Simulated scan of single mutants.
Amino acid sequence: MSEEIQTFTTEYLDDCANLYVEVFNSEPWNEQWTIETARLRLFEILNTPGFIGFVLRQDEVLGFVAGYCEQMQKGKGFYLKEICTHHDKQRRGIGTKLLNQLMNTLTGMEVTAIYLVTMKDGQAEAFYTKNGYQRSQKLIVMSKRFYK
């Protein structure tokens, strides 16, 4: 079967949740997702107004990208919430193909900016840098934990 990029719909939710757990529970993230929590996260993103997402398949889902458009001060912005590529298929252009599909779609919608949050100084940042993204000089990410 040849490689194909399709719109991310609920049809792909379970496959993408399984991939999400496999990837983000491993190095370098070492998170603790379950299939249920990953499925719920992706379901929530999928149902956010302005959602745009794609999956790349070749017999199975090899990767996906997902996020949503929102109104910014000057035009529309796109919040890239998740991009995920099968461990064994990384560094083979899947993520770049997904970003290119996303860019083509967003350009046609007159989106003026894409923003995202990722781990600094790692392979994810290197991937985004390679694809033309740069660290913001104006913005930082802040968090506050309030659970036990």
Rank of each mutant, 00 (worst) to 15 (best):
S2R: 01
E3R: 08
E3K: 09
E4M: 12
I5S: 03
Q6F: 14
T9S: 12
T10C: 07
E11G: 13
L13A: 04
D15S: 14
D15W: 13
C16D: 13
C16K: 08
Y20E: 13
V23A: 08
F24R: 11
P28K: 10
W29L: 06
W29Y: 08
E31G: 09
E31M: 10
T34M: 05
I35W: 09
A38L: 09
A38Y: 05
L40K: 10
R41I: 00
L42H: 01
E44V: 05
I45P: 02
I45C: 03
L46V: 05
T48I: 07
P49C: 14
P49A: 14
P49W: 13
G50N: 07
G50Q: 06
I52L: 02
G53A: 02
G53F: 01
G53L: 08
F54R: 05
V55R: 08
L56T: 02
E60Q: 14
E60I: 14
L62A: 04
G63C: 04
A66C: 08
C69S: 07
M72S: 03
M72K: 05
Q73V: 10
Q73L: 10
G75Q: 02
G77T: 06
F78G: 00
F78S: 01
E82M: 04
H87Q: 12
Q90D: 07
R91T: 06
G93Y: 09
G95Q: 02
G95E: 02
G95F: 03
T96E: 07
T96H: 05
T96N: 05
L98D: 06
L99H: 01
L102R: 01
M103E: 05
M103V: 03
M103A: 06
T105E: 09
T107G: 05
G108D: 06
M109P: 11
V111T: 01
T112Y: 02
L116H: 04
T118E: 01
T118A: 10
M119C: 02
D121V: 15
D121R: 15
G122M: 10
G122V: 08
E125F: 09
A126H: 09
A126C: 07
F127P: 00
Y128F: 07
T129Y: 15
T129I: 15
N131R: 13
G132W: 01
Q134C: 10
R135N: 15
S136C: 12
S136Q: 12
K138N: 13
L139Q: 12
I140P: 05
I140D: 14
V141Y: 06
M142Y: 05
F146E: 00
